[in-house]
Design a protein around this nucleic acid. Structure first.
Lengths: 194, 194
DNA sequence: GTCTATATCGAGATAGAC
DNA sequence: GTCTATCTCGATATAGAC
């Protein structure tokens, strides 16, 4: 509500978000987050009663952050093709972080899946927001028989690029693959739609 | 050396291998492994002095297991194309496990990368064994200018399929994507090579 | 070799002073 | 609201009996 407490809460979530991305959820302790924010562990529990609670807050922040970003893309680009190019270029714009820490969406889902964590379903919403947006762009281009399938394919291609670029810490590979994915979009999607 | 101790050691590694795949490395405790094998925690330390040591053993087992599997494929299929089809079909053959636990190669590398674990380089050898084999098959088909790049592309496609299938626990998606990847191989690689 | 303690540490979580 | 203890638990790891 604009109070000082709310702002601190946001700072905690932001710090946790960054640490979960860099170190993973389970590798990040309350001490890590508290240290990053500059508060004590005890104070931490005033704002979040459990680790699941902060994970939930981080996921919600990421989901709404993705949603906000896509809305900005919609304003920035009127042509659905440009929007899709911009999506595909995303790994390129974040190549430094991705080669170091993978995709923030996929690596969290992978971690939660391994842990059989109940919040995997919530984390999947990060994917779903992207997918919904992708489907919308594809339908604007007249692709409506298999838009969902193409959208899922684009998600998977991005995950494959991020995973391998991360494992090998290889930015050149990432760049190659983004180029190749753009060609695929040109040949298979854009050409076939008119 | 065929002693009883060696056999128990192998049983420990096999149990750890399975548990690391299902639960992840860090989520698996010595107690988990000891319970699975049916020995005490204390006995465990007679065979492996640290958790890193058992991780190392699991990675080596997986690397040599992959190597052995690929050699068997080489015997089973003489045509490099058949071999590549068989590679691409691998997620299909393991679709149950992959939708539940992801790719055993990629998910371990992702976990070790997040933890900044020094053994990530060793884990990457799992990828490299596959890649080397893929390059060999592609070169047999006369693809030698960009065989490495195509091999890396195939690795990444597999990772994308496994990651998303795992996050959504979606076998249908996995099946669709394998089909699509086969078409890509037909159109982009096989057609262009003659 | 295999076991039962046990040591040690760091994690999540709580209580209560201020 | 924020802090300093403190509790509890489970993990890695060790010691030493058998």
């Amino acid at each position: 509500m604009g109070t000082k407490g709310e702002k601190l809460r946001q700072r905690i979530v932001a710090a946790a978000d960054e640490l979960f991305y860099r170190q993973g959820y389970e590798n990040t302790s309350f001490s890590d987050i508290a240290d990053a924010v500059g508060i004590s562990r005890g104070n931490f529990y005033y704002h979040f009663k459990s680790k699941d609670e902060i994970l939930n807050a981080v996921i919600n922040t990421r989901v709404s952050g993705i949603d906000k970003m896509l809305n900005e893309w919609n304003k920035e680009f009127t042509d659905p093709r440009q929007r899709l190019y911009h999506y595909i270029d995303m790994p390129l714009r974040n190549q430094e972080k991705i080669s170091l820490h993978g995709c923030p969406v996929g690596s969290l889902c992978t971690e939660l899946a391994k842990a059989s964590h109940s919040m995997l379903d919530d984390a999947n919403n990060m994917f779903i927001v992207f997918r919904t947006w992708l489907v919308a762009q594809l339908e604007l281009l007249g692709i409506d028989n298999n838009a969902e399938q193409v959208a899922m394919h684009l998600l998977a291609r991005g995950q494959g690029i991020a995973s391998v670029a991360n494992a090998f810490e290889d930015k050149e590979f990432l760049q190659q693959e983004v180029k190749q994915l753009k060609r695929w979009l040109d040949d298979e999607i854009f050409d076939s739609s008119h």
